[in-house]
């Protein structure tokens, strides 16, 4: 179920299109049906369900939060923005993600306009790794501890500060819950550390 969880998280932060929201609704149903019992995001998913219809108005909200807005983008969706000293994009932390992807024979698709450490790319990368066998554990652990855990809580905190539309407030909740939960999982604790 971890691939679906991360894919769902990734989709929540992608530009909303009718097709993507349809996919998210499908994933949500799947997660509610088959998710881990007593998962911390249970109520978040219930609250998210009515928020996943396509709505033209969400385009402006998505732009305001993540792309371009006056006053300014409150939650830059790039890992390096939060991890590099000078807030630069395509920093060393971005290249680390790029190299990690390359080790698994994948890259960010050229037509997406995304960087490797865009939140959509990183979460989808984790979804991909989670679907592989246990040889990917070490990479997942590195991704989770050295990237997600270091910037995504800052990102979600910044997001909450600007009173986002319910979909994005819930998306922030879901992402926090997923990362906190995943960091405590047995798969990670039992895997050898670097």
């Amino acid at each position: 179920m971890r691939p679906q969880l991360y894919l769902f998280a990734s989709g929540l932060f992608n530009q909303p299109t009718p097709a993507r929201l349809e996919m998210l609704r499908g994933l949500l149903a799947e997660l509610r049906e088959a998710g881990p019992p007593n998962a911390p995001w249970g109520e978040t998913l219930i609250a998210l369900e009515p928020q996943l219809d396509y709505d033209e108005g969400m385009q402006a909200e998505y732009s305001r939060l993540f792309i371009l807005a006056v006053p300014c983008v409150p939650a830059q969706p790039f890992g390096s923005y939060w991890l590099e000293d000078d807030q630069r994009l395509l920093g060393d932390s971005t290249l680390e993600i790029k190299h990690m992807m390359a080790e698994y024979g994948i890259e960010v698709a050229g037509n997406t306009g995304l960087l490797p450490d865009h939140i959509v790319s990183e979460l989808e990368f984790m979804a991909y790794l989670a679907g592989l066998d246990e040889t990917a554990h070490q990479t997942q652990q590195k991704l989770l501890e050295q990237h997600f855990a270091r910037w995504m809580p800052q990102f979600t905190a910044a997001l909450r500060e600007v009173n986002p539309a319910p979909r994005y407030r819930l998306a922030a909740d879901f992402l926090d819950q997923l990362i906190d939960w995943d960091r405590l999982q047995e798969w990670q604790l039992s895997s050898p550390s670097d």
Binding site: E107, H118, V120, E124, F125
Partner: peptide, 21 residues
Amino acid sequence: ATMGGTALSIAGLPSQALARI
């Protein structure tokens, strides 16, 4: 998929961000 890459699927769904090298 990238221009030269091939499509990737994750958990049975098409990738939105990634492609195979």
